[in-house]
């Protein structure tokens, strides 16, 4: 399969994601101000392959994470998730570990850009970030911003993804967005 096919596949995958695809999975709960050094300590930044980075994700904070996380799982965190350095290795490690979406009360600026640029969706919900517990199961509908806690069906409404970010994800990430918009003109 060549690079173009891969990109087309990725694009389709992301389109489905925005158009109402539900994510469901176990919740991994974190607190406020989770910085990029906690997500992927700098001593592991001498490589840039996502699969290698994923093995070290949260290595110091939560050593069991990389071993136990399953595809589709959800991270729920407090305020200012992803603060600190600009290392894209942080969202990349999380995405490659299998996390489908991050719900937090708020996100740090560079992390926010990076995550959408690589196709890892983030949504903001103060209530969900407070009330969802570690080990809970939940589902997330990206298009509507609806989060549902599985054990009792409680619904949380997240802030909608800003239109431009949705457009980025629809395009299949910033690389594809750039290829389609910029370089053709």
């Amino acid at each position: 399969m060549n690079l173009t096919d891969l990109n087309v596949l990725k694009k389709e995958e992301k389109k489905r994601m925005v158009r109402g695809m539900k994510f469901g999975g176990r919740i991994w709960k974190f607190g406020d101000d989770i910085d990029t050094d906690l997500i992927i300590p700098a001593r592991f930044l001498n490589v840039s392959e996502g699969s290698e980075l994923a093995k070290r994700c949260f290595a110091d904070l939560r050593p069991d994470f990389a071993r136990s996380v399953s595809k589709g799982d959800i991270i729920v965190a407090g305020r200012n998730f992803g603060c600190g350095s600009s290392r894209e290795h942080a969202p990349l490690a999380i995405k490659e570990a299998g996390i489908s979406v991050i719900i937090a009360a708020s996100f740090a600026r560079i992390f926010y850009r990076n995550a959408f640029n690589i196709g890892l969706p983030l949504i903001e919900s103060f209530d969900a970030s407070k009330e969802l517990s570690d080990g809970d199961e939940a589902s997330v509908d990206l298009e509507s911003g609806i989060i549902e806690r599985s054990r009792d069906g409680k619904i949380y409404e997240a802030k909608a993804i800003p239109p431009f970010m949705a457009e980025l994800i629809e395009a299949g990430g910033l690389v594809e967005y750039t290829r389609s918009r910029k370089l053709k003109s």
Binding site: S86, E88, R113, N114, N117, L174, V175, T178
Partner: peptide, 17 residues
């Protein structure tokens, strides 16, 4: 500051949103 994907795009286009 930005991440590497933004930077890759800037290296190609000289522009950023």
């Amino acid at each position: 500051g930005v991440g590497s994907t933004d930077l890759g795009v800037i290296m190609a286009t000289g522009e950023i949103w």
